[in-house]
């Protein structure tokens, strides 16, 4: 295996491990009955972080310049913002 491939695979392996851990924490929060706006936003934050890792390392966008570098980040920002707004409003904290 050449050094360039190894340099790409190592963060990908870490990405997979981090995603497994975050997924298990999310599941534990779900089955533990933890609830409330901050738990929901924390879980959403984990999901957005996992999405960014997939975009950067699995999709290989960390090594791309220009618009395509940010396409997944922008999508995550859009989805994260819309879902957060909906959950914040429905929680009633703004009332």
């Amino acid at each position: 295996m050449d050094s360039q491939t190894r340099a790409w695979l190592r963060p990908c392996t870490w990405t997979w491990l981090v995603m497994v851990c975050l997924t298990l924490v999310t599941w534990l929060l779900g089955v533990s009955g933890a609830q409330g706006l901050w738990v929901a936003l924390l879980v959403l934050g984990f999901a957005l972080l996992k999405g960014q890792l997939v975009g950067d390392w699995f999709m290989g966008l960390h090594g791309v310049s220009g618009f395509w570098r940010w396409v997944v980040s922008l999508w995550l920002l859009l989805v994260g913002s819309l879902v957060s707004i909906a959950f914040v409003i429905s929680s009633g904290v703004l009332n």
């Binding site: 995603m19 997924t23 999310t26 599941w27 929060l29 779900g30 609830q35 929901a40 879980v43 959403l44 984990f46 999901a47 957005l48 996992k50 999405g51 997939v54 975009g55 699995f58 999709m59 997944v72 989805v79 879902v83 959950f87």
Partner: peptide, 22 residues
């Protein structure tokens, strides 16, 4: 591979949104 990662990416949001966040 990129298409497959997109399918994975979508599920990463779908899972907490539909199954966990409340």
């Amino acid at each position: 591979a990129s298409y497959w990662h997109m399918v994975d990416l979508v599920w990463l949001i779908l899972f907490p949104l539909v199954y966990v966040m409340h």
